[in-house]
């Protein structure tokens, strides 16, 4: 495994994904804010949550990039469309299983069944994260396609 390449492009693709999601939020296409959602697991302070969540999100991006790279090694090739394909599967997982699991794992997220409580007040994402806006799935898919495509296009498999 080419560690330098994986660390570099794992970081770059995570930054691009975060930027695309933040851009979608800024353009009012979605209210989904993954750093904020991750950060509020640790603190109720919004400013601090954003900072903590950003760090966690970058680390998770790096971690997930290793799975992409493992797949490239398994196939013995890395192309933008292979990366994008994995990104599509990744996005589908995040939007379906990930979003469904989140209220159960997040200490400040309300459940759809019980509603908000003193401790749990954050709006849950719902199926396909549609609670955060009907264009949310598109934003998530586009961001993950870009994440995978960058990894596939720029990750360099070590020479045999």
């Amino acid at each position: 495994m080419n560690w330098t390449s994986s660390l570099l492009w794992g970081f770059v693709s995570t930054i691009v994904l975060t930027t695309l999601m933040a851009g979608s939020q800024g353009m009012r296409l979605t209210r989904m804010n993954l750093p904020y959602m991750l950060g509020t697991i640790f603190t109720a302070n919004r400013d601090r949550a954003n900072v903590i969540g950003f760090g966690v999100h970058v680390m998770m991006g790096w971690l997930f990039s290793l799975f992409y790279i493992a797949a490239f090694h398994a196939w013995d090739r890395a192309t933008w469309w292979l990366g994008a394909s994995i990104g599509l599967v990744h996005a589908a997982f995040v939007l379906t299983a990930g979003m469904r699991l989140l209220p159960g794992m997040h200490p400040r997220m309300a459940s759809e069944q019980q509603g908000p409580t003193v401790m749990r007040q954050l709006e849950p994402p719902g199926f396909l994260a549609l609670n955060y806006g009907y264009q949310t799935p598109i934003s998530v898919v586009v961001a993950h396609l870009a994440f995978g495509a960058i990894l596939g296009a720029f990750y360099t498999l070590p020479a045999r």
């Binding site: 939020q25 209210r31 959602m37 309300a110 409580t117 007040q121 954050l122 709006e123 994402p125 609670n131």
Partner: peptide, 15 residues
């Protein structure tokens, strides 16, 4: 009202 982030939904009653 939430236009930027996921909404915060406050409980009622004592809260």
């Amino acid at each position: 009202f939430a236009d930027d982030w996921p909404a915060v939904l406050p409980p009622l009653g004592a809260w």
